[in-house]
Amino acid sequence: MFLITCPFCGEREQSEFKAGGEAHIERPKQPTELSDDEWAEYLFMRKNIKGVQFERWNHAHGCRKWFNMIRDTSNDTIKAVYKMGEKPPVK
């Protein structure tokens, strides 16, 4: 079970958090302009990488804030956490 450092609250047990899938997928501003394929790309397609992955997490049983996390899914190392809207601190 991970120890996750919420950017607002500090280090907490994983059980306080909810994973929210891949990060940095922006909801299209003008969905109606998109073709079915383009919309499907946004709606369904996720990378699900074995390796370094950018993810969204929510401190659901804490401050309720969403934030981003960089995690290596092959060994569960958390490389960084950062607030929504911030640039990833590492590649």
Binding site: R56, W66, G85
Partner: peptide, 13 residues
């Protein structure tokens, strides 16, 4: 609530 918070915080801040 969680879904609405999600949109508010991440898509429509």
């Amino acid at each position: 609530l969680s879904k609405l918070e999600d949109y508010l915080q991440t898509e429509w801040p």
